[in-house]
């Protein structure tokens, strides 16, 4: 299956105390139309991997191969909305002028539950609403590949749940590939087609999950996966880079 291929990806940062090797040769294929969730302890290089794939940073070694032209969108940990634009203009930020369509935007605004806030500025919104605007901005761009960096980490339980369902719906409708970074095992179990564990800068384990959606993450099968993930993450030799 064609997809995004990541081969031998390495990245290090120069620090005052020396060099910090974050990624030590990541090998990964992201099949088309799948949600791949990257899990790992904080500081393990999840975000770095995402930034490299998104082209926000240059890799040291290795390569990332995209099959043909990809329209990519990024959802960051923080909403990162333009403070001087209202909700609607922020959502249309990724689109060129001739691509903008008021009806499509209105539909997306409705999907993320921001009806009536089209003209509000980001500072007038709650944190959850800002993050929903950021998600809408990515969706309005109609990407074929979405990268998400713990996008729901700052949301309350219920908003997070509805956003997760929203993401699954988008995936069903658009067949976009999604690379999703999180540190929440529950979130990974809810969303993923495949879970990738990263530790010590390499892919240390991989779990394929059943296709069925919506999922009950308390069913026996997923609890078994959860146990496996927890024990893999708790391995004593898994020293997290500082």
């Amino acid at each position: 299956m064609a997809g995004i291929e990541i081969r031998g990806l390495t990245k290090s940062y120069k620090m005052e105390s020396g060099t910090l090797q974050v990624l030590r040769g990541i090998e990964l294929t992201l099949p088309e139309g799948e949600i791949t969730v990257v899990l790992g302890k904080s500081g393990c290089g999840k975000t770095t991997l995402l930034r490299l794939v998104g082209g926000l940073e240059e890799p040291e070694n290795g390569e990332i191969r995209f099959p043909g032209e990809q329209k990519t969108a990024f959802v960051f940990q923080e909403p990162r909305l333009m403070p001087w634009l209202n909700v609607r203009d922020n959502i249309e930020f990724g689109q060129k002028k001739n691509q903008r369509n008021r009806e499509d935007t209105a539909r997306i605004i409705h999907t993320v539950g921001l009806d009536g806030f089209e003209k509000s500025k980001p500072h007038q919104l709650s944190g959850g609403m800002q993050q929903r605007t950021a998600l809408a901005r990515a969706l309005a761009y109609r990407p074929s590949f979405i990268m998400m960096d713990e996008p729901f980490a700052a949301l309350d339980h219920f908003t997070r749940e509805s956003m997760q369902q929203e993401l699954l719906r988008v995936r069903r409708e658009t067949d976009a590939s999604i690379l999703f970074v999180t540190h929440s095992i529950d979130e990974a179990l809810t969303l993923a087609d495949r879970i990738i564990l990263i530790s010590e800068g390499v892919v240390s384990a991989e779990y394929r999950l059943p296709q069925k959606q919506p999922r009950d993450i308390l069913c026996d099968e997923l609890i078994a996966v959860r146990r496996a993930i927890v024990s893999a993450l708790e391995k004593p030799n898994d020293s997290t880079p500082v």
Binding site: G54, G55, L56, T72, A73, F74, F76, R80, M82, P83, W84, L85, F93, G94, Y141
Partner: peptide
């Protein structure tokens, strides 16, 4: 970075992000 993630050109980044900010 948001502008970059949407493949903005330098000119478009200037007009849409740098100038208003």
């Amino acid at each position: 970075e948001v502008a970059r993630s949407f493949s903005y050109s330098p000119m478009r980044t200037f007009v849409r992000v740098i100038l208003p900010s």
